[in-house]
Design a protein around this nucleic acid. Structure first.
Lengths: 213, 213
DNA sequence: TAGATTGTTAATCGATTAACAATC
DNA sequence: TAGATTGTTAATCGATTAACAATC
């Protein structure tokens, strides 16, 4: 059996998982691939193909049992155990993230915050422990943190990322503009750069409008 | 000539553009596809292929002239004219975005903010004009806003997105968890859901680690 | 000039879509 | 049972990579 799953399929399965959580809350028991297509915009073909990577999921001819499919995805992707995360950069964006960080479902927990500005560490109001930035590597290692969130200015990005990776982080969500570089084998990165997204959107709009001319 | 450009190519070219801006600031005059590969992690093959969608860009055998390539991408994607954007949701995340919204390069300008909470509209400190959420559609239309940024709770997502689209927005950056639905032809959406990104990261880590077992 | 590098066509690779037997 | 829906193989589609002539 080939355990590998293409990234597009992983991404879609995560969307499905998120959607199943809400279905479960609503008390819906079963769902078909065609209804997932309608609700998530993922073709029923892809849904079935993606699920087949996980092994048999359930009732041929009867759709999927919501709780069972959720379990199956969760088990394959290790969503059962709570992951420890940390946040670097406690400016306005960082604080906003921290506030939202009582994550629903409790899959992730931000257990540490870092900032290079000592004043900020003293004045910030949060239940999360905060530390100076030079302690990133040691604290990440000591606390067993596996995920990092970066919300610092672009200039500090490389340094912060390096420290997180040195500490043993396996995944980084990066809000700073710019790319983390060089990428280390086995460490995964997701960039969230609003400016870049706006640029992509306007490019898409422009390209589309030129075709229809 | 086929004007169409695949989305992966658009995305990469936007990264290249962003990188060229910083090169220009540093005063570097020329750059080769192989150096772009090293700096951006995009294969030199892809770089050349992507640029070829734009038409001839420059010196065979001599790399690309930074300013010329920047112009070429900018022209094709319409980056020259400043785009008007608005922000819906003036909570902590929205405020943080607004603060950062003096965007470098001036490609985008947030010219309006919206919130359903009237108190928030009165107390917020910003140079941007703010309006109640029920005026989204009319103000977007009146001001000629083409891009929307959503930073509201998940429950209001659909309604806000609908109003933005009704007003004529062509692109939406969505920070709210959940999908905008149904997607309207010719309106593009980029989702920025940190929770979803964390989930994808842990799934990637898990899948990779199982392969190497 | 010679070495380097592009532009572009061809070949490979991988993902999505289609189709249909299996089965609830 | 019959209609509906999955699981999985095959076919299509599109993007990435390779290769090489053109040319700086």
């Amino acid at each position: 059996m080939n355990n590998n799953i293409p990234l597009p399929a992983i991404t879609r399965l995560c969307s499905v998982y998120q959607f199943l959580l809400s279905l479960e809350k609503d008390g819906q028991k079963r769902i078909s691939s065609s209804e997932l297509e309608r609700r998530l915009g993922i073709s029923a073909h892809s849904v079935r193909k993606d699920i087949s990577y996980l092994g048999i999921a359930g009732g041929i001819g009867a759709g999927y049992e919501v709780s069972r499919l959720k379990e199956l995805i969760g088990e394959r992707f290790g969503f059962a155990e709570q992951k420890k995360a940390c946040l670097v950069g406690l400016g306005r964006l960082g604080s906003a993230i921290l506030q939202r960080s009582s994550f629903p479902g409790g899959e992730f927990r931000v257990i540490a915050g870092f900032d290079s500005n000592i004043n900020k560490l003293e004045t910030i109001k949060t239940t999360v422990s905060v530390f100076p930035a030079y302690q990133i590597t040691e604290m990440v290692r000591a606390l067993g943190i596996t995920l990092g969130i970066i919300a610092v200015p672009a200039a500090s990005l490389q340094e912060v990322a390096g420290r997180l990776i040195d500490g043993g982080v396996r995944g980084i969500v990066n809000f700073a503009p710019g790319l983390i570089n060089p990428t280390v084998e086995g460490v995964f990165i997701r960039n969230m750069d609003m400016m870049a997204e706006l640029r992509i959107l306007s490019a898409q709009v422009r390209v589309r409008d030129e075709i229809n001319t």
